[in-house]
Simulated scan of single mutants.
Amino acid sequence: MSTNLNSMVEANPTTVLWNDSADPVELKQSIAYGAVGATCNPVIAVACVKADLPRWSARIAELDAEMPEASESEIGWKVVEELSIDAAKLLEPAFDKYEGRNGRLSMQTDPRLARSAAKLADQAEYFAGLAKNIIVKIPATKAGIVAIEEATYRGVNINVTVSFTVPQAVEAAEAIERGLKRREAEGKSIDGMGPVVTIMCGRLDDWLKECVSREGIDIDPEYLEWAGVAAFKKAYAIFAERGLRSRLLSAAFRNTLQLSEFVGGDVVISPPFKWQKQIVDGGAELPERMSVPVDPAIVEALYQKIPEFRRAYDVDGMTHEEFDTFGATRKTLRQFLGADEELDQVVRDILIPAP
């Protein structure tokens, strides 16, 4: 294993690496770098199908025969399930080693269900039954917060997604706590449960950059690379203060700060494989940085000049009813919905090729 990612894992055993893909080639190499988790969703499924088109073309044709009345979407989601199950098998050794805390494959609930807490919880419970080491992504939206508590109560391990801000992360972690406490109150086991709460640091940065450009805000552009990091570190401190049992997960990488600044924390770092390879090939050292605060001058400038950063940084900057209106939430949900449509198109092109 590389001297940097390997040494990071060895020197900071609470800081773990997950791979932001279920592609089998990438995942196997990421496991060699020390990864103990991975993820799958329609975006990743499309990439995996395109990367191994002969295999998946044949499999989609078989699914068409097995499910003659299924829609393109139903076939596409069956592909997501099969990709996820395959990836989960690769992670079983880590799952057994960490007794369920790691070694999990994240499956994302269908974004078309995002308005229904009941449907999200039901699908989460179904996905959790596909393999012993599945963890299910539910968005930190108004309906998602309700679904997160309910699915946790049912014993589903949750990975909160579509989450960019301190208020979203804290509200989602509190929902998980309510679900865990309901289980405990009824004498149900929580052994082996390992929920995580994602902050998509790079997507927060993206949104703030868009706001700065649109509104003509005068701020050092380098400061905008620190917004997601600052939100993550603040949420981490709040989780510790409140005794929240979920771990934070850093995702949506736009710069190496979104890995290096969190080393040493009891957190999950989930970069795309290309970022892992870049860090490995670059040979950068990864010392402990979680305890080092972001420069207060940077945080103050972001806070004073960008109203959307204040919404993202203050623990009460948004109510859960307002999560759906946050710009990064809308953009991300639209992208995920677009990926669903793209997966449908891939299935269509295989089953009904153009003349």
Rank of each mutant, 00 (worst) to 15 (best):
E342Q: 14
M67G: 10
P139W: 05
Q168N: 07
K78E: 14
V267K: 01
G179P: 02
L91P: 01
I350A: 15
G100T: 05
A45C: 10
V79S: 04
R154K: 10
G192W: 06
L337H: 08
A87H: 03
I138Q: 03
Q278H: 15
N102M: 10
A175Q: 01
A231V: 07
A227I: 01
F326H: 00
I352E: 12
N41K: 11
A147H: 07
E74S: 09
R183W: 05
C48F: 15
E261H: 11
S57Q: 14
E322I: 02
D64F: 15
V25K: 10
V315H: 00
R112M: 12
D220C: 05
K331V: 03
E72L: 15
G129E: 12
I306D: 00
Y303T: 00
N255Q: 12
T332I: 02
R183Q: 10
L113C: 09
I350T: 12
Q168R: 04
E210M: 06
A88L: 07
A32L: 11
I31R: 11
G243P: 01
V267G: 01
E177M: 14
D191L: 07
A94L: 05
L259F: 06
Y153N: 09
S260Q: 09
G228W: 01
D340V: 12
K209Y: 05
R154H: 08
T109A: 15
A143N: 09
P355Y: 12
D316S: 05
M1C: 08
T198D: 04
F309M: 01
